[in-house]
Design a protein around this nucleic acid. Structure first.
Lengths: 229, 229
DNA sequence: GAAAAAACATGATAATTATCAGTTTTTACA
DNA sequence: TGTAAAAACTGATAATTATCATGTTTTTTC
């Protein structure tokens, strides 16, 4: 038997904290723990989801293919986040694919439980609503960044964001290690352009690299760069 | 006395249709009808909203200033849409400004009524949730378009979108007339670049113009263009 | 109805970013 | 542990888009 939701810390960070004890028990009894290996996908764009995924550990990218076949990463998940909520709530196909960036531990929660609870527990609905409102605001910000900032600014912002959200190790390298390709797909640029820019940042001493690993050296300068100064 | 929400057609299109008769009456009694002149703003980014706006007539742009001072239009509202929901739900400042593109008629509904109903009527919460889920999906699409498509593709898409959503008059011109500046702020390009592209489209016979008015001539071709063919 | 302001338009040029064609380095694994 | 595949990188060049400068048309205002 796996650990219970009642004792799960990550629940604090997501909408499941609005559940009553009984509701939580139901969730706990029907959830399925899964381990996802780095690079494997949790679900794919256009798929019908049978439930949501609660992230216990690891990071995944939520991405979407554009008509030209390039991947665009729309969001990186944080620990405790629930994925697939939008799709389950709207009873819709997923508009995004979720792929593990490093090894993950997730809990799958069947959609019936989610929709039942949505119908009966207004607090839970509100909590989900608030999370979605937050996501929507962030999406708006991304839209503005994508259309008004240069690749250089977006990359600078990405580094600051990654440091803030996922931290750095004792040597000052970002904990979350992304491929150059992933960086390109976050920032929305050609991989070659992005690699060049990383070299440039390194030359200027704004970042340091060691293989795939990247460390933020001049956070302040990067932030100013992102803000257009 | 103004007309009642109970008889208002636009309610069909938004989350207010989930209200009970009594709830609807409360909304009706406390709502304030407003007329907004073309160019005037309903609310401004960073403001605390005291309620939501239900659009009875007219169109508004929801936009955000980027750090370089340029405006980015994130969304155009449709008739019946409720604006400011995100902000009221999250008890947050607005992240967007709303400006009337043509003369508008809107109803202001105080936030207390909205939040009370959210707390007591799970159907309403769910309905709002579904709308927000829809907005979020659309925002994801915009992100992908912004980062993966060229200005030309985005403009082509905008024309098709405007025709589909707001229709055309008897002479085949788009009902919704936008300034070149607005077009630039929708597709995320410099105004000069955008004007050039409009000239190009016109020269190719894809659109026709008459002053500010623009008509879609070759919808099929524009759509293919937007899809990258 | 004229003056002023705003919006529209075009040319020349510069900056940004993508693409293509490779080479080198790293990683995976038989 | 050697080798094939994948990822990272570099250079040359082309395409896209922004910027600046300036002229024209349309709209607004008094």
């Amino acid at each position: 038997m796996e650990s219970k939701c009642e004792n799960c810390i990550v629940r604090q960070f997501n909408s499941l904290r609005a559940l009553s004890k009984e509701e939580l028990k139901k969730v706990s009894d029907s959830k399925i723990s899964k381990k996802i290996k780095k690079g494997d996908s949790l679900f794919v764009e256009g798929q019908k989801l049978d439930g949501v995924y609660c992230v216990r550990d690891g990071v995944s990218k939520l991405s979407k293919l554009s008509s030209n076949g390039k991947e665009q990463i729309v969001k990186l998940t944080n620990k405790g986040e629930v994925m697939g909520q939008r799709s389950v709530v709207a009873e819709d196909f997923t508009n995004l694919s979720a792929t593990a960036i490093n090894d993950m531990e997730v809990c799958f929660i069947p959609k019936e439980i989610i929709s039942n609870t949505l119908n009966t527990n207004p607090n839970f609905s509100l909590e989900v609503l608030r999370h979605m409102a937050h996501d929507l605001k962030e999406a708006d910000d991304v839209i503005v960044n994508m259309s008004q900032k240069t690749v250089k600014q977006r990359l600078a912002e990405a580094f600051v964001y990654l440091k803030k959200n996922y931290g750095e190790d004792e040597d000052g390298f970002l904990v979350l290690t992304l491929s150059r390709d992933d960086y390109a797909n976050i920032v929305g640029a050609a991989t070659e352009s992005l690699i060049r820019m990383i070299s440039e940042f390194k030359k200027k001493g704004l970042i340091k690299t060691s293989g795939k690993k990247i460390g933020v050296v001049e956070e302040q300068t990067l932030q100013e760069m992102a803000d257009g100064f």
